[in-house]
Each structure stands twice: as C-alpha cells, then as structure tokens.
C-alpha cells in the first residue's frame, strides 16, 4: 500500500472493508476463535448471521434490542436521578440547611456521591452487556 494513494476514500475501499457479502451474496468461510469445539452447527449459524437470512437477522435484532434495553434503562435512570437533584434543591431550599459531619448536605450529595454511583452503574452495564454477549455466543456455538 503506497502512501500516495491515501486521499479521499473511494467506494471500492468501503466495499472491501464491508466484506464480500455486502456486494454479492457469496458463501464465505468464517473462522471461529474457538477451534476446539465441533463446528458444524456453529458454522451454519455464523453463515446465517453473515448472510442475513431471516434467522440470522432475527438473532442479531434480538441481541441489539437486549443491549439497547440495558443501555437505555441505565442511562435513563442516571439522567433522571441527576435531573431530579436540581429540581429537589430548587423546590425545597431548606435541604441546604441540613448538615452532615459539619458539611452541608448538598455539597456532599454533589461533591462526593455521584462518582461511586456512576462507576457502579457502569459496572452493572458491563456485566449485563457481557452476559448478553455470552448468551449469544453460546446460542450460536451450541
């Protein structure tokens, strides 16, 4: 690959990146990462996925839906929680008078609490997403 032909990407390059199946429906050998198990059935599922038969498409759609549900659920929870706080402070200004360990409560709530919570949400999502992917792989690999 010469470095002089690196200008605006041509359509051909994109097709190349997308793989052959994007251009013409042709059978293509896909190698599994795990080579120890019997691969006949898994290979068929993989090819179905790649070629987007109705079965393959359904499988992928379900996976995306699952992941999206996790992501949206958690993001919605966090965003609602965050957006509720300013409203709470706005509607009930007396909260600011509460003191905990000599520090006003809102300072603790905004200065300390969000960071572990954000991490915890991220951790939960990582676990859910990896479980969904594992289930998917197991199903394909059955």
């Amino acid at each position: 690959m010469s470095r002089h032909d690196a200008g605006a990407p041509e359509p051909a390059a994109r097709d190349e990146w997308l793989g052959e199946s994007a251009r013409k429906p042709r059978r293509r050998r896909v190698v599994l990462a795990d080579t120890t198990k019997s691969r006949g059935k898994a290979m068929r599922t993989l090819i179905e996925l790649e070629e987007q038969t109705s079965v393959g498409e359904k499988l992928v759609r379900d996976l995306i839906k699952q992941q999206l549900r996790s992501a949206f659920g958690l993001a919605g929870m966090v965003l609602l929680g965050l957006c509720f706080l300013p409203f709470l402070f706005f509607a009930f200004p007396q909260i600011a008078d509460i003191k905990l360990l000599g520090i006003h409560l809102p300072w603790l709530v905004l200065g300390l609490a969000p960071f572990p919570i954000l991490y915890a949400v991220g951790w939960v999502f990582r676990r859910q997403a990896e479980r969904h992917e594992r289930d998917f792989v197991n199903m394909v690999d059955r």
Binding site: V30, L32, V60
Partner: peptide, 15 residues
C-alpha cells in the same frame, strides 16, 4: 444489516 451485525456481534465470533 451487515454493518449492525459487525457493530454488535460479540468479539469471539470474529466479525
């Protein structure tokens, strides 16, 4: 469909 498959398929499947 191919693109979404590539974006979402778990890594061990090798897409």
């Amino acid at each position: 469909n191919q693109i979404l498959l590539r974006l979402h398929a778990p890594d061990p499947l090798g897409f």
